[in-house]
Design a protein around this nucleic acid. Structure first.
Lengths: 198, 198
DNA sequence: ACTCAAAGTGCCACAGTGTGGCGTTTGCTC
DNA sequence: GAGCAAACGCCACACTGTGGCACTTTGAGT
């Protein structure tokens, strides 16, 4: 599910391999020496790829570091397309998210927490990550109704915010099996949080 | 309210003047020629300030462009400190926001919409803006309760998201008098949005 | 008034990111 | 195997942001 169908031609397979090598090595290197303090050249030397080629595959240094996050949301939108929209939209969003998480493979569950830690430690990555979330939100709005509807946009903002809070809870241990539980708990807390009093 | 007490010494006044000149000219230049397409040197030449001096006053090109936004949130936190926290926390947040907006001067209401338009058109500014919002959220959490409380963090996320949605509604015309109305409407829609059904 | 330390500033050089041009290799197709 | 298009590598460049160093201004002490 996380990786779409086989690339037919050898050329495409090779290209995909370098893409994956870049993404995986990026997480390793940045996790080891820090994102901001690791020059892009270190990654290029490690994977033995020229700068020109890198920038044909990824838009920026941040882009390659956020591969796991982008994979999740890309798959999420696919899941959303494939699910029947009925009942509470919050539930639709939450269930699509849980379904997507369920379909992720082990490799992803290894790289995703590492990516979260990188995001937490780098201001630049944080900004790029938040911006990507915002882009996904407008995509989700198109799939769930009229993207010009204020209440719909707010609902999606709330759902994504809830997801981020669930991640915050998960981040310390990052046990793969516990993520769905955190997501359910956070989504259950949505209504109560609005009722909080001083 | 937006600018704190007079700077006593001449030196500080001079420094403040260059800071303001940089921020104002930045909005003008970037609004005219685009943020990403305008080199920083263009701003430095216009204000007649060396690069070295600029980076002592602002952390980045994005930083100077977001001055109006940072001013708002800075004032908001001050307002939050000065208000009595009682009753619904959502209301506390909303009222502090409305109070802050009410105290902004005309110059701010001129630069703020221009800043919003810049943010909308530049991916980089968007990222920095969102990241700044996230930083403010943790600050607000400290002022409203235990920042480790899941429901509190979610509530604040929801409030800031609501504020962003209100801005989206306001952005087309940007009539200063209508902003509070948009804010009230958006905050009123919070509960209903969670009940949306397909 | 004079001096002095500190803060501010300008100039210079450098590291890092991202882009465009252009020749060369590689894999696909016939 | 020959031609073709995509991908690649190398080179050079623009822009952002940082550090070093010398010079000027400012506020304070005497």
């Amino acid at each position: 599910m996380t990786t779409s169908g086989e690339p037919a031609t050898l050329r495409e397979r090779k290209k995909l391999r370098t893409r994956q090598a870049l993404a995986e090595t990026a997480i390793e290197l940045f996790g080891e020496h820090g994102f901001d303090t690791t020059p892009l050249d270190a990654l290029l030397d490690a994977v033995e790829v020229s700068r020109r080629t890198f920038f044909r595959n990824y838009r920026s240094k941040e882009d390659v570091a956020l591969t796991a996050v982008k994979q999740l949301w890309s798959d999420f939108l696919v899941t959303l397309d494939g699910t029947e929209k009925s009942g509470s939209l919050v539930d639709v969003f939450r269930d699509a998210l849980l379904t997507t998480l369920d379909h992720m493979d082990d490799a992803w569950y290894e790289r995703f927490p590492a990516t979260l830690r990188l995001i937490d430690r780098s201001a630049s990555l944080n900004g790029h990550s938040l911006r990507h979330c915002a882009e996904i939100q407008t995509e989700a709005a198109h799939r769930l109704g009229d993207p010009r509807d204020l209440e719909l946009r707010m609902l999606i903002e709330f759902c994504v915010a809830t997801w981020r809070c669930a991640l915050d809870e998960w981040l310390p241990d990052c046990a793969p099996g516990e993520l769905p539980g955190h997501v359910r708990r956070a989504f259950s807390a949505m209504n109560d949080s609005l009722l909080l009093r001083a």
